[in-house]
Each structure stands twice: as C-alpha cells, then as structure tokens.
Amino acid sequence: MSKKSGADLGRENAARLEDYLASIDVLPNRGGKVNVSKVARACGFDRQVLYNNPACKALLDTAVIEKGLDGIEARESGEHGDDTPMVPLKKLREVEQRNGALEKKVSELRARIVGLETRLRRQEIIDEELISRGRRASPRPISLLDENDK
C-alpha cells in the first residue's frame, strides 16, 4: 500500500469537488454564504481543503459566483463580522463602574427584601397564634422604611 503525495491528494480532492458541484443545482448555504462544512462533508474531505487547496478554492469560488452567494474570503486579523462601532475605553470603564454600582444596589435591596419577608412571616405567625387562642392584638404600625430612607 503506497501513500499518496500531497499533490495527488489535492488533485483527487479537486476532482471530488468538481463532481459534487456538477451534481447539485444549489449550493448549501447559511445566511447567504456558502456552507463550507456541508460542501466538504459531501465531498468527503476536511473543510480546510476548500481554504488551502488553490484548485478547490477556485472551483468553489466559480460555483459561488454562478449561484449568487457570498464566498469564503478569509478574514483578516482585526476585522469584525458585523459593522458595530468600537466603544471608547473611557466610556466602557464608566459603564462598567455604573454597572458595578447598580449590582451592589440590587444586592443590598435583595438583602433588605429578605429581611422584610422574615419580619412579615414572624408577624403572620404571631397573628395566627393570637387568633387561634381567641385573642386579638391591635396591630402596631410597621415601618417598612428604615429611618435613613425617610
């Protein structure tokens, strides 16, 4: 059993891709772009072949143009897939500080709610006990606000 050279494998992959492209009417796509993984899977090789093998890349690019899809251009470093603008670092830090302060406030409010719920449960237990014994106490007003919140 002899091993095939890289050039032989490349020609074989290009032939498989050419046969596949001739046998289909529509390229598999995702969001208007060719789905490289599905094409490679259908041809029986790794999808990197479509990026690295010049013959396969040319065949696929031609098919993409004929089918009206976007191609498989490699992204350059620093290029973003979306057109959202970058946020200045100063503004990002300000937002993070505000977010931290708000998270702290939410945490404090949750702790306060737990304390108030505990007081309410105690009061309900006392009321039930008094009612079950036939006594009724005049409810004293309960302030839900702390003295510093007034």
Rank of each mutant, 00 (worst) to 15 (best):
E73H: 08
T118S: 13
Q123E: 05
V114D: 14
E18R: 02
R119M: 05
C43T: 00
I125G: 10
N99S: 04
M1Q: 04
V64Y: 02
L120V: 15
V95Q: 06
N13S: 08
V95K: 06
K105G: 00
Q123V: 03
A22R: 01
A101H: 10
A42L: 02
K90S: 05
R110A: 11
Y20V: 00
L59C: 14
S107V: 03
D82G: 09
I113F: 10
R93L: 05
L145N: 06
E18V: 06
R136N: 09
E117A: 09
L50V: 04
P85E: 13
R11V: 06
R133H: 04
V87L: 12
K57P: 03
V26K: 15
A63C: 00
N148V: 14
R47K: 15
P139N: 03
I126N: 15
E108P: 01
D25H: 09
K57A: 15
L60V: 14
E18Q: 13
L50H: 01
G44W: 04
N29M: 13
P139T: 01
L89D: 07
A7E: 10
A55E: 11
S132N: 14
D8F: 02
P139K: 13
R110E: 13
A55C: 00
A22M: 06
A22V: 01
P28C: 02
P141Y: 07
G31R: 15
S5L: 12
K4E: 13
K105D: 10
A55I: 03
S138K: 13
L145C: 09
G32S: 08
G81K: 02
Q48L: 10
V106Q: 09
K33Q: 15
L92V: 10
L144V: 14
E73Y: 13
S37E: 13
L109T: 05
C43L: 07
L109F: 03
R136Q: 12
G6K: 14
P28N: 05
E117G: 09
H80C: 11
K104P: 01
R122T: 02
L69D: 10
R122Y: 02
V95S: 08
R110Q: 15
A63F: 00
A14G: 03
S77H: 14
P28E: 07
R136A: 11
L89P: 01
I65S: 07
D19W: 00
D82F: 08
E103K: 15
N53W: 08
A63Y: 00
S107T: 15
G10C: 07
V36C: 06
L145M: 14
N29I: 02
E12K: 06
Q123R: 04
T62H: 03
L145V: 07
G6A: 11
M86A: 15
F45M: 11
G134C: 02
G134D: 04
K38D: 09
Q97T: 14
N29Y: 14
K90F: 04
P28R: 12
L102G: 11
S2N: 02
V49Q: 00
A137H: 04
E103D: 05
M1I: 11
L50T: 04
L144G: 09
K57N: 12
L89G: 08
L102D: 10
A40V: 08
L89T: 04
A15K: 09
A14E: 01
P88I: 14
V26G: 07
L17I: 03
